[in-house]
Write a protein that binds this DNA or RNA. Structure first.
Lengths: 252, 252
DNA sequence: CGGTCGGTTGAAACTGATCAACAAGGGTGG
DNA sequence: CCACCCTTGTTGATCAGTTTCAACCGACCG
C-alpha cells in the first residue's frame, strides 16, 4: 500500500523536498488538545478502535489516512468516511464508538483520554465551540454523502469522490494536479456504495475520456477538473455533451 | 395530508382522549432554550428555512414532523432526515443552513436566535454539552443512513425505516402497534434513495406477507415486528425462510 | 518460481428505475 | 350538493444500470 505522504513511508526516503504541510485545513492555531494528548503511531491496516467499544479516547490524525467503517451482520461494509490529517476521530460524547477506525496508511495520531477531553470541554469554551464546529462540518459532509449514495449514479459518485480527495490534498480543484489515492478500490467502493468492479470500470471511462490519467492505480492526475466537476453534479452524459471536448469522447 | 396527531388537525376534532405526549424522548427536563425561544407554528408544506440561507436561528420541534432536504441542480432530491418532536433543527454553528426544512404536518416550534443560542453556549456548559450530545446522536444516525443507502436492498431499507418510525413514535418495537406515516410516499422514497413506485411495491409485499396492515396509506400496523426486524438486517429472502411463517408467504 | 492479492475486463443476471395506465380521495367551483 | 379535477398511491411492462460470476494480468512476497 502506498503511503500518503513521502515522509510517512519508511521504505523510500526520496530526496523530494518535504513540501509545505499538505493540509493544515482545520488547525490554524495550536490545539488545546496538544497539552493533554499523547502521540501515537499506527501501522497500515491496524485497528484503532472498534464499533461498540467503550469510547475511552479521542484521536486526532496528524499524518496518514484512516477509514471509518460500519458493518452489517452478513459482512456488507460501509465506509462512512476517510479521516485525513486534521480530522478528529472518536466523537467527544457517545458512550461507545459509533464506528470502527482502521489505519489505511501508516499514521501518526494524538490520543486524548475521554476524561481529559471532558475536562477540556468544561474549562475551555473555545475548545467546546471548536468541537461543535467540527461536528457541524462532519454532519454537513454526512448529508452530502447521503445525497451521493441515495441519488447519484456511479460516474457522478466517483467524480465527486475524486474532487473531494483533491480538495483534501489541498490542491485548487481548477488546477491539473497529481494526487494520491491511499485507499484500495474496495475501500472506494464501500465508501461510494458500489462494487470494486464498477469503480474500476468508471475509472477506466474517465481515463479513456481523457479526464484523468492513472500512472499507477493509487496515483491519479486530474487533467480536466472542470469536466470532472460537471460529471459530479450533472452526470456523464450531459457533462461531455455540453462542453467543448477537444481530445477524447466518452466511450459507449 | 393527514396530520400527525389528532389534536393538530383542525378539521376533525375527534372525541379521542388526548393520549399521553407521544414522544418526549430527549427533553427529560425543561430546556434552557425555553427561556430565550419564542413559540411559532408552521402549516403543512411551509418552508422553515432553506439551504444556503444565513443561519439566523435554531428551531426545536415541539409538535408535528419536518423534513430536511438537499437538492441537486437537476431537481433530484434527498431527504437527509425527518425531525420529530424533540429534534433540534438549525445546526448551532454553520454560517448558513446546510439543508432546507419543510413542515410535513402542521407544526409547533420553538425558535431561538443565533445570538441567543451563542450566548447560551457560552454561559451554560450543560447546554453546550447537550448540543454536543444531540449532534453526536445525529451523526450516528447519519452513519446508519449511509449504511442503509450504500448497502441495503429496497426491502431492507423500507423495513428499517418502518422500525425507525415505530421507535420514534415511542412504541416498543416488539409490540404490534399502529402508527402514523405523516410523510408521503415520495418523501419516503427520497429518504430511502428509491422511487415512489419501489416504495409502494415493497409496502405491498410486506402487506401480502402479513408483516404489516395498511388501513390507509398513511397509517400502518406492524403485525410481525420481529420479522420486520429480520428483513431490515438480513434481507427479505432469509428472513422469511428462517422463521416459521404461519399465515402468508413472500410473493414471488 | 509459484502463490496471493489487488486491479481490470468481459458476459450474464438481476434489482430497481422508467414509462404508462388506472383507482381512490379530497377539494373546489358550479 | 354534486361533478369535476388534481393529487397521491398502486400496479403492470419494459428498460437500464449495476451487480454478480468468471477469467486474467501484473506486482509483490515468500
Amino acid at each position: 500500500m502506498l503511503a500518503l505522504n513521502a515522509a510517512s513511508s519508511p521504505t523510500r526516503f526520496s530526496p523530494l523536498p518535504p513540501r509545505a504541510q499538505p493540509v493544515p485545513v482545520r488547525r490554524a492555531v495550536a490545539s488545546p488538545l496538544d497539552a493533554v494528548a499523547t502521540p501515537q503511531t499506527a501501522k497500515a491496516g491496524q485497528v484503532l478502535f472498534q464499533e461498540g467499544d467503550p469510547a475511552a479516547a479521542l484521536f486526532e490524525v496528524t499524518k496518514g489516512v484512516v477509514r471509518l467503517c460500519r458493518m452489517m451482520p452478513d459482512g456488507r461494509r460501509s465506509i462512512t468516511g476517510f479521516a485525513f490529517p486534521g480530522a478528529i476521530l472518536g466523537l467527544p460524547i457517545g458512550e461507545v464508538f459509533a464506528y470502527t477506525a482502521e489505519a489505511i496508511t501508516g499514521c501518526e495520531l494524538r490520543r486524548a483520554t475521554r476524561s481529559a477531553v471532558g475536562r477540556l470541554l468544561e474549562s475551555n469554551a473555545d475548545f467546546a465551540r471548536r468541537m461543535l464546529a467540527v461536528m457541524s462540518d462532519e454532519l454537513s459532509a454526512a448529508q452530502d454523502q447521503m445525497l451521493l449514495l441515495g441519488r447519484k449514479h456511479a460516474a457522478e459518485r466517483l467524480a465527486s469522490f475524486l474532487l473531494w480527495v483533491a480538495r483534501k490534498n489541498g490542491r485548487a480543484s481548477c488546477e491539473a494536479s497529481q494526487l494520491d489515492l491511499p485507499m484500495s478500490r474496495t475501500d472506494v467502493a464501500d465508501y461510494l456504495g458500489l462494487t470494486t468492479e464498477t469503480v474500476s470500470r468508471e475509472m477506466t471511462k474517465l481515463r479513456q475520456a481523457g479526464v484523468v490519467t492513472l500512472p499507477t492505480p493509487q496515483r491519479i492526475k486530474i487533467l480536466q477538473p472542470e469536466l470532472l466537476q460537471q460529471i459530479a453534479e450533472e452526470g456523464e452524459a450531459t457533462a461531455l455533451h455540453s462542453s467543448r471536448v477537444t481530445t477524447a469522447r466518452w466511450p459507449s
